[in-house]
């Protein structure tokens, strides 16, 4: 079924992203990964999130990555080593994480009482309307803080990376 496809693809793509020699290839595999994640969100009845994922993550952040990679003009990895000296330790730690997390996750069931945003409730208004309503009323404070965060990001990018005038 569809979940199997997505799960398999996401796993394979994640491995591809972290193991490519050329960073541009990694970015491109990440793009495919994001599109699949958006697809998964569609299955979870989160259409707005799927759209945002594509627009912001794939459309803005990855483009930024590509810009920087091109700007830094990396020669196609002159060195032969692409992994660090202690990559085996990283692999071991990663595997330990995987075992611990997956075994814990496999026991998860829905325990808390269900909220009121059932699939039908969201479908009746549309995902975007539901999020919009609560974003500007209940979650107003985090929203404003997030806007400040973006301002700080702009300041940072300018202060750190602009060409020196002196």
């Amino acid at each position: 079924m569809f979940f199997a496809y997505f799960a398999g693809m996401l796993t394979v793509l994640s491995v591809l992203v972290v193991t490519r020699r050329n960073p541009v290839h990694s970015v491109l595999w990440m793009l495919v990964l994001f599109v699949h994640i958006a697809g998964l969100y569609l299955f979870l009845n989160a259409e707005f999130m799927a759209a945002i994922q594509i627009i912001v993550y794939a459309g803005a952040i990855l483009v930024l990555f590509l810009f920087v990679i091109m700007l830094l003009d990396l020669k196609k990895d002159e060195s032969v080593r692409k992994f660090q000296n202690q990559w085996f330790l990283g692999l071991v730690i990663g595997l330990i994480f995987m075992v611990v997390l997956v075994s814990t996750a496999s026991k998860i069931t829905v325990i808390p009482p269900l909220g009121e945003y059932s699939v039908d409730a969201i479908k009746s208004e549309g995902s975007m309307m539901t999020i919009g309503k609560i974003l500007y009323t209940e979650y107003l404070l985090p929203f404003e803080i997030a806007s400040l965060l973006l301002l700080v990001a702009i300041i940072g990018a300018v202060v750190l990376a602009k060409r020196r005038i002196e």
């Binding site: 796993t11 994640s14 080593r81 202690q86 994480f97 995987m98 996750a105």
Partner: peptide, 27 residues
């Protein structure tokens, strides 16, 4: 539900591996 969380766990672990094992800062 647990299947989604397991998938998330697998991806997270792969990310941890990538962080610890790669040399290229962009990766």
């Amino acid at each position: 539900l647990s299947w989604y969380i397991m998938l998330s766990a697998v991806m997270f672990s792969i990310g941890v591996f990538g962080f610890l094992a790669r040399r290229n800062l962009i990766i």
